[in-house]
């Protein structure tokens, strides 16, 4: 890839950017790269293998320490969470959630569905108000108590 003049170089500029580079370009560039890294120009440099091995060992050791540390941290976190969940006495000493007193005790056998349709829950009527709910006596319709007679 030697262009002696600017015109020569400009003539070779690709019109399309996405176009594949031609074989000629590729070969010329490869030749130019080979010329740049011509061995004669390279100074005699020592081998880096020993330094690379030492550095690589250091990286591996550091990685091992880091992974051991993170494993330890995860284990410590797991223990902390487990202790926090179970509490000091464990699950046996802790009382279960209290059931409301009106609830029937849970039976082992499932209860058959009731034949009577569930009725509305009776609510106490306020003064001057008629609830209208069946089975709930209002102030007027209620039988007088024996004490009024």
């Amino acid at each position: 890839m030697r262009w002696e003049t600017r015109r020569e170089a400009e003539r070779e500029v690709e019109p399309g950017m996405g176009r594949e580079t031609s074989e000629r370009d590729s070969a010329a560039l490869q030749r130019a790269f080979a010329e740049i890294v011509d061995d004669s120009a390279a100074p005699s440099l020592p081998s880096v293998t020993d330094a690379a091995v030492a550095g690589g060992r250091r990286i591996r050791r550091r990685r091992a320490v880091a992974s051991a540390g993170s494993a330890l941290a995860v284990a410590a976190l797991a223990v902390t969470v487990a202790v926090g969940l179970t509490g000091p006495g464990g699950s046996e000493g802790r009382p279960g959630p209290a059931a409301p007193p009106s609830d029937p005790p849970p039976s082992a056998t499932p209860t058959p569905p009731s034949e009577v349709a569930p009725s509305e829950i009776p609510t106490p009527a306020r003064n001057g108000e008629h609830s209208g709910a069946p089975g709930v006596p209002s102030a007027e319709s209620a039988p007088p108590s024996p004490g009024f007679r």
Binding site: M1, R6, A9, E10, M17, T21
Partner: peptide, 26 residues
């Protein structure tokens, strides 16, 4: 796609630079 575009741009820029530098040297 980026490789293609960067490769084409790089080549084009290299040609321009080489043209300028070769012109200066000559």
């Amino acid at each position: 796609g980026t490789v293609k575009s960067q490769s084409a741009r790089g080549l084009r820029r290299l040609r321009q630079l080489l043209g300028t530098l070769a012109h200066e040297v000559n």
